[in-house]
Design a protein around this nucleic acid. Structure first.
Lengths: 338, 338
DNA sequence: TAATTTTGTTTAATCGATTAAACAAGGACC
DNA sequence: GGTCCTTGTTTAATCGATTAAACAAAATTA
């Protein structure tokens, strides 16, 4: 790259000190600086095409106006949509976002946090993985401003914005039961993640509450590693029981996407043979032959609020905000008898 | 945040100069430093939980190990998938990615470039918008390392990685013609973007080459602003002609997604009444009742190569690499007569 | 007129690293 | 014993900003 123009270049050209240039370009000491000089400085700055070196500025001011976004996979539509909201909200406040995906690996998220802190981000927005409690505790101890989104730890007092997963699942199952479905399956993750466990719990509770005996075989927890194969196997299992399921719930959009591909291949009629509900809302769910009834998380709100909370924390607030927003159940063809 | 540990803290605790600490932690002057001292320094660094201040380091070394990714919308699956590839590739080389979406606004992309350059990114990966030529020329003039992806300008000699859009569209149309479809429509963007215009050109050329007279009414170019409404209108128009189309091609995944929703609502049989082809490959296209024949761009390759080219440029290479990769036509139900 | 205030600007320290160059002490060589 | 290397470490400049404090000159007040 070309040698860059710095304050000194402007200062020399105008014949003043760098301090004065800095004051002018930052609009400080407004009343004190002679108008003609200020004008001249601004003129020369534009003429030389001056560009603030944020790195130098950050070193001195101890603020990078950067926030780090850590998610499991930025290419998951949930994450990329969230990223977009956060980007916009950050931008409004002159922040820039750096991001990283940890693929549910504790080691990778450790490394990401480390990298981002080295880069002196002003704060972090994290959708933490399983077993990330020690990570989070460390951040608290180091007094790093951060907020968790989507996923959180009920036992740790941190900022977080998420939905009420229990109620969301509960509501979805009640809707299924109300629509006449009786043998409701669910594919979920074998995980310690609280948000997922809450979905499981809601699924179970709604059935018990409505006099449906909870059948262990109907809640299949798969691993993230072999997602596609595990989903297929789970569906096959639940359909091949002597009492096959008549409704199926997907705990996440990733499970749903693979589940739908399989169900499609099996030429199963939805909802006649099998009703379906999924968490999240994606284009893929819309375009399935029976558009899916889904639990639509208020992504825009989550992203906006999370960013807001983080920026407040960065500004020094030590309030802790914990928010469980309601998710909306969008009822569509996949659970409606014709 | 807590006061941070810096080199000086380690130096004082060990009783040496900061220079020595820096040498040790960066593994420089290997042979020269007494082993016991080096060990002690490393020990104290861990003990104090030292964290390099990358900002300070960057200021001195003039390298941030950051690359800026500028796309129209990070939440578009094409962009987020690309972002993920770039992230992984960057990470392998110890780079971090900052991103920004410009929503096809020239002004916003100008601002993003400005912000990123102020932050001293080492280089940029850009999927540039319409009329961005002056932007790009400016980057060249300032000798900023950058590479364009997906979109590029044929008249400007820059690094780029994209597909061969003309051939991709041409091939898709030939496939349609070969499958017996005769009145092929296309919904594209009214834009100056070369990659889109190439798709249009391929669409037209393939028909002419195969003795199908090109009908202007069958290529409808919409605007990005009212995409959903425009897509619906375009489809209606092409279906309501006295000679309705029997096949339709979507120029991008965004057009396709909205188009499919509409076609679904119209209960059109695919491919019996209307065959469909789309650029890009997304889950949504897979889950449509007739999985879409699509032009699958080699995203992973594009992302990897683009990153590689950029890193080379950052390292000082002034080679210009221009790559048009072939895209694969995935033939699926939406164009196959039963 | 002297003291004080205001206006306009500069000086110089600082942020936390890196790194060329200087320096000191010990060992090898003639 | 003097010269020259080696080895091991420190000094000090530097990156490009910010900003408290100092300073000088002009204007106001007493």
């Amino acid at each position: 790259m070309n040698r860059k123009i710095c304050l000194k270049d402007i200062a020399e050209k105008v014949g003043v000190s760098t301090a004065l240039v800095s004051y002018v370009l930052n609009n400080k000491k407004e009343g004190r600086i002679k108008k003609s000089v200020a004008e001249k400085i601004r003129e020369v700055a534009t003429e030389l095409n001056y560009r603030t070196n944020q790195i130098a500025k950050s070193l001195k001011t101890n603020r990078t106006y950067t926030i780090g976004l850590i998610v499991s996979d930025i290419s998951n539509p949930f994450s990329s949509n969230l990223a977009r909201i956060i980007e916009d909200e950050a931008d409004k406040n002159n922040y820039t976002v750096i991001f990283g995906s940890f693929d549910e690996s504790l080691q990778r998220s450790d490394k990401l946090i480390d990298t981002f802190l080295n880069r002196q981000v002003d704060g972090l927005i994290i959708a933490p993985g399983e077993n990330a409690t020690s990570q989070v505790l460390l951040l608290m101890q180091q007094k790093v401003p951060f907020v968790l989104v989507d996923r959180y730890f009920p036992d740790i007092r941190t900022n977080y914005v998420a939905i009420d997963n229990y109620s969301a699942a509960y509501g979805a199952v009640e809707h299924l039961i109300g629509s006449g479905f009786k043998r409701i399956g669910m594919i979920s993750f074998e995980t310690g993640l609280f948000n997922i466990k809450e979905r499981d719990r809601g699924y179970i509770a709604a059935q018990e509450k409505n006099g449906i005996e909870y059948n262990e075989e109907c809640l299949i927890k798969i691993s993230n590693e072999n997602l596609p194969a595990d989903v297929e196997r789970a569906i096959n299992t639940m359909l091949q029981k002597e009492q096959p399921i008549d409704a199926l719930m997907f705990a996440t959009n990733a499970i749903a996407t693979h589940g739908l591909k399989h169900i499609k291949n099996l030429h199963i009629k939805v909802p006649e043979q099998l009703a379906l509900v999924s968490f999240d809302k994606t284009d893929a769910l819309d375009l399935f032959y029976a558009p899916l009834t889904c639990i639509d998380q208020p992504l825009a709100e989550m992203g906006r609020i999370a960013t807001k909370i983080l920026l407040d924390a960065i500004e020094g607030s030590d309030a802790i905000t914990q928010l469980n927003l309601p998710a909306e159940l969008l009822i569509r063809s996949s659970t409606m008898h014709q």
